[in-house]
Nucleic acid binder design. Structure first.
Lengths: 207, 207
DNA sequence: GAGGTTTCGATACCTAAGGTAGCGTAACGA
DNA sequence: TCGTTACGCTACCTTAGGTATCGAAACCTC
């Protein structure tokens, strides 16, 4: 469906770029919660109402801003699974380290915990595309890809949310190492020592 | 310092138990954000001001409630590292599965992302004690214990926050498996295939 | 250039929720 | 009975997301 025939009336001002930039800078300066739409709009040189004309909620603005900040996933064709996973982890970690991006990322996921509507938007617009890209690149069953994503994103976001800073390089290295070992080992099962039975029923025995 | 000599005036009503119960039930019913202090107080049969007389903020109320819900960590003496880790992971996963606990847990961590004061409280009252307990039980360097905690809690909370439900058993099994393999392998380094160099510099190459 | 249509900025406003203040009353000890 | 403190209640403040309204501006067509 062509979108060419310009609609009547005054055309919209092209402010998307400025708003995204203002969003990241405001989040960086004030933190996620205090980066209000009003502040973001002011910094972008735009009225608050104009922002709400383009994005129905703060959450959706952040999601679009993150989509813009992350860009396409660096999934090289002809790359092996280990390389794809390693590159993906380091890519996410690096993006989270960019000013404002980590806070915005952690913040919008935080809000989504208590906001089912935002959770849907987040899942559909931000998670699903990357999940599908990873799914086709990795050639792994869906459940394993989901597990991979939850481990990586969960770990990185948790550290970010608790310290305000992204993980240090050594921890990113450890994360890569751990994930790669696990997925490599799953192909050639059971050759490592197991002192405990992971399938044992859980019973709490307080100390 | 003895706390025996009763202070003058009307003694406080013992409502802690009721408030904690009301908190979990309200969170379960309304979700974290909509579980307002007013609703919690009402359900506990208590005035909102009474709650604020005991806990200085909603966040601290939740933290105390979680401390009560989790109880002491099940760190058995004479248990090996693998067993300790496995038990710990399954213990946290099980607690998160209890009604209200998972939502409260994810919710308070979410709020802490944008609230430095709450982050401090969370770190000092909830994370630190368990971290210290694990530290002495595991006999591992601090950084590795922190990494362990971030991976486990981060992964579980991320899944919880995104789906509203705790991880399924298969994923908890996978998490245990992954963590155990990693920490076991770190003792006897480099015997697994490595298709990619995890130490390679990261360069994004969008597809 | 006139009229129609839509966006813009500005302002005022609504609502939810965290949190506080003040007040009369109830429960304790002395 | 008095002093002290906690209680419930109500009213209130503040922040922030989000909406409504309105005059002015920018565009197209006639």
């Amino acid at each position: 469906m062509p979108s060419s025939p310009r609609p009547p009336g005054r055309p919209r001002t092209g402010v998307t770029t400025e708003v995204f930039a203002a969003t990241l800078r405001t989040v960086q300066e004030f933190g996620y919660a205090r980066a209000t739409v009003e502040r973001i709009a002011a910094r972008a040189g735009v009225a608050k109402t104009t922002v709400y004309r383009r994005w129905p909620s703060k959450g959706e603005l952040i999601v679009d801003c993150l989509l813009d900040a992350f860009g396409p996933a660096p999934l090289e064709k002809d790359a092996g699974r280990a390389e794809l996973m390693s590159t993906t982890i380091r890519w996410i970690a690096a993006k989270i380290g960019e000013p404002g991006v980590g806070d915005a990322f952690a913040g919008v996921f935080s809000d989504a915990v208590s906001d089912p509507a935002l959770r849907e938007v987040l899942a559909a617009r931000l998670q699903e595309p990357y999940r599908l890209a990873l799914l086709s690149a990795l050639d792994e069953p869906s459940q394993r890809v989901l597990f991979f994503i939850d481990v990586v994103v969960g770990t990185l976001l948790h550290r970010m949310g608790m310290t305000g800073e992204p993980m240090v390089d050594a921890d990113v290295d450890a994360l890569v190492e751990m994930v790669l070992r696990y997925f490599a080992a799953e192909d050639q099962p059971a050759d490592l020592p197991r002192k405990a039975d992971p399938g044992a029923p859980l019973k709490s025995a307080p100390s």
